[in-house]
Design a protein around this nucleic acid. Sequence first.
RNA 1: GCCCGGGUGGCGAAAUCGGCAGACGCAAAGGACUUAAAAUCCUUUUUCCGGCAACGGGAGUGUGGGUUCAAGUCCCACCCCGGGCACCA
Length: 813
Amino acid sequence: MPEKQYDHNQIELKWSERWANAPLFQAEENSSKPKFYVLEMLPYPSGTLHIGHIRNYTIGDALARYKRMRGFNVLHPMGWDAFGLPAENAAIANNRDPYEWTRYNIENMKRQHRRMGFSYDWSREVTTCDPEYYRWNQWFFLKMLERGLAYRKNALVNWCTECGTVLANEQVVDGCCWRHESTPVEQRAIEQWFLRITDYADELLAGIKDLEDGWPERVLLMQRNWIGRSEGAEIDFHLEGSGKPIRVFTTRVDTIYGATCVILAPEHPLVAELVSGEAKVQVKQMIDSRAAKGPGDIEKEGLFTGSYAVNPFSGEKLPVWIGNFVLMGYGTGAIMAVPAHDQRDFEFCKQYNIAIRPVVRPVDGALAELVTMKEAFGDDGVVEHSGSYSGLSSAEARRVMTAKAEAENFGKAAVTFRIKDWGISRQRYWGTPIPVIYCPKCGMVPVPESDLPVVLPLKVPIGGKGRSPLENVPEFVNIACPKCGEPARRETDTMDTFVDSSWYFYRYCDPHNSSAPFDSKKIAYWFPIDQYIGGVEHAILHLIYSRFWTKMMRDLGLISNSEPAKRLFTQGMVIKDGAKMSKSKGNVVSADEMIERFGADTGRVFELFATSPEREMDWTDAGANGAYGFISRVYRFVTRNFGQGGSEPTAADKKALRKLHQTLRQITDDFEGRWHFNTSIAALMGLMNVLTDLEKDLSAPAIAEILEKLTLMLEPFAPYLAEELWEEQGREGPVFGHAWPEYDPELAREEEAEVVIQVNGKLRGRINVAFGTPRETLEKLVLGDTKVRPLLDGKQVVKVIVVQDKLVNIVVK
RNA sequence: GCCCGGGUGGCGAAAUCGGCAGACGCAAAGGACUUAAAAUCCUUUUUCCGGCAACGGGAGUGUGGGUUCAAGUCCCACCCCGGGCACCA
C-alpha cells in the first residue's frame, strides 16, 4: 500500500463522529469478569478544559483502556462538581443565571472530553447541581441530624470578605482564603451547621494504616498531621480564693513541677471574671491584633491577671496570665507554662521575667544550668526536683501522675485532636439548601424526608454580600411548619460544595436511582474504587471528607466498606514553558487550541511522554511537535508496510520481532507497576526506530504480526490512531474490544549476553557470550582477551568478580 | 524551625535489585531531496586532551567525606529548589 500522510483532524473527526452517540464503554451490570473501578476526580465546570485537566484524564483513560483489554469489567465514569462560587460570581459579573452558565459550561466541557477520546461511560454522568443528586445530600444531612452528627452552634468561624461566606478550616491557607490568596480570613461569630467529623477522628487516623499500600505516603502524612492526635492529660489548677478550676491540657504532665505560671487564651471564659477595666481593653486588643496579623509572625504578648492558681501536685501558688499564643480552639484553651521544657513557654517567661525551673534531665546528662540556658529542653529524660516522682523516667512519671490525678479527681488522661468539626454552612446561593425549617413555636424542624428535595429556586437575584441571596426569595423562605402548620422560615444557608464531592463516586454505581442514593448491592460489587486519580491539592480537603462520608454511610448501614479508594494516584501539575499556567499570565493552553494544532492523540502522547505521571510536567509546543512527529511516523510506517513483504522468514524478522516483544514487555510492566508511561512511549519510539531500519527486509507474516501488536499497544495512549490503523489493516474493530497481547519471553530474549569487562572498575571492553556461560569460563575468556592482557602486564591480579551474563571486573595491583 | 519530595548534557528526561551514565525526545549543526522553502530522510551532538582518521586517554550525576571489586543508586554532613505543617501545649 502507498504511504499516506497523517492528518490528525481528518482522522480524529471521522472517529469522533462515529463514536458520538454510540453507547460505548458502558460498564456491565451483571458480569462474570473481574471488576475494575477507575476514577478521575470530577472537574468543576469552569467552562473549558485545559492541558492540566487533560493530564489527569489521560492517565486514567490509558489505565481504563488497558484494563478493558485485560478482560476487566471497567467502570470509568465522569461527572460535574457543578455547585460553587464561580457560577455565582459569573452571575454577578456577567448577569448570567448560574444554572444557565453551569449548563452551558458542562455541555462545552463534555464536548471537549469526547473530542479527546476519553472512554467514559456517559450513561452514568452525575451533575451535582441536579436536584436528583443534591436531594441525597439533604437526605444524608437529615440522617446525620437524627444521629447527632449534624448540629448547629454559634461559633467563631473563618470569614472571607471576598467570597462573602464562611470557610471550613481546611479552606484556609496561610491565614487567607484558598480561593483568594491575598484575602486574610476574618474571625466572626455566627450560627453555623457542623458535621461531627471529630467523632471519626480516631478511626480516620487508624484507617490510614490500611491505605499505606495504595496511597502516596505524603498524602497520608498530611492527613495524619491534619488530624493531629496527641495524647496527654487534663489537669485542674484551682484559683486561689474562689477555688474555681482552670483545666489545662498537657502532653507533659511529667514536667508539672517545673510549671511556673498558668496561661489562658484571651478568649477563655474565665478571663472576663479575672480582669476588669483597663485590662479588658488590652485583652480585646490582643484578640484583634492576632486576627489582623494572621498566623506566623505574631510576637508573644501577655498580661498578668493578678490572680493565682494552685499546682495540684506541688501545692505551689502560680500566677495566672493571659497569653496571645494560647489558642482557645485547641485543648482546653489554657496551659500550664513549663518554660524549662517547652520552647514557647521559655520565650514567654523570659520576656516577662517569670521563673524558669528545670525538672527533667537528659538520661545521660545533668539538669540544665539556669545561667547558661538558651533554649528549652523538650526531650523526655529523667524527672528531678519533683517530690516523690524524682528519679522516674518521663514516660513512667506521666503514667503515675495521670493515675494520681484521676484517683484524686483533679484530672484525667485525655486525647486532643487538631481536626475540628466540619463547618458546612455557606451564606451563598449556588449550593444545596440545608433542609431545615425554623418555626417560632417548634424551633428547628427538619424537613420531612418525603418533602425532599428542597429545590434551590432558579432565577434568584444575586448580589450583596454577607447574607444568603435566598433571604430575598420569599416563596422559598416562607413555609408552613411541618409540625404545627404555623408560618415558619426555611434555613437560607447552603452546604459547602465539598459535601457534593464527598460521595459522588457512589452515585456513579447507580446514577438514576430515585428512591435511594444508591442500591447497596451495586456498591458492594463496585467498591472500593480500585484506582482514584487526581491532584495532590485535595490531600486534606476532599480526600479526608470523602473518607469521613464513607464511614458515616457505613454506620448508617448503607455500605460495608470503610474506605472509598484502595489506591490513590496524585499526578503532577502541568506548567507551560516553565511557569505555572494562569489566566493573568495568559499562558493557559485550552484543550480546543491544543486539539486544533496537534490533535487529541498527540496531546495525550506528549503529556505521558514528557515525564513520569507523578512529576510536574512542562508543556512546550516544541515537545508536542516531537510527539506529533512520532504519531505521524507510526501512521506512515503502517500505511506503507501493510500487505508488504515476501513469504520467506528473514533474519530481519527475528530482530524486529525481538524488539516488538521487548516493547510489549516494557509497556505491560509499566501498566502493572510504576505507571512510568514516559518509558512506555520511549519504548514505542525505540521500536519504530528499529522497524524503519529493517522494514525493507521483513517478511509478510512478520509485518502482519508487527502491525497488529503495534496497533494494540497504541490503543491506551493514542486511541484515534489505533482505531484508524486497525481499519487500515482491514481488521474487525473496535480495537478496545480486543485482548491486550501477551509478550513471548523467548522471542523477547537477546541472542547473546553482552558482558562488560572492567579493570579496577573501569570499563575496558565487552564480549558477547551465550546466556548462562559459567563463571569460570567467563573468567578465563576475559583474562585471555587480547584487549585485556596488555592492561594486566606487570600487575598482579588480586580478585576477579564475575556477574553472570553481565560483567567481569578484574581487580589488579 | 519541623516533615516530605527533588537536584543527571543546551533543554524535557532514562537508568525498576549497587554492575556499560545520558535510552527516548527536543533544540542545534552539517548533509540529501527541492528552482527555493516547508515537510521528510541521513549524520554529528556530556566535556576536556591526543590523532587526518577508525580510535585512544582523562574527568563527569548539587558540594564534601565514607562503605564497596564496583555508587546517580547505600551511609554521614552540608548547599540549593519545590511542597506540606508551623505558637496545636
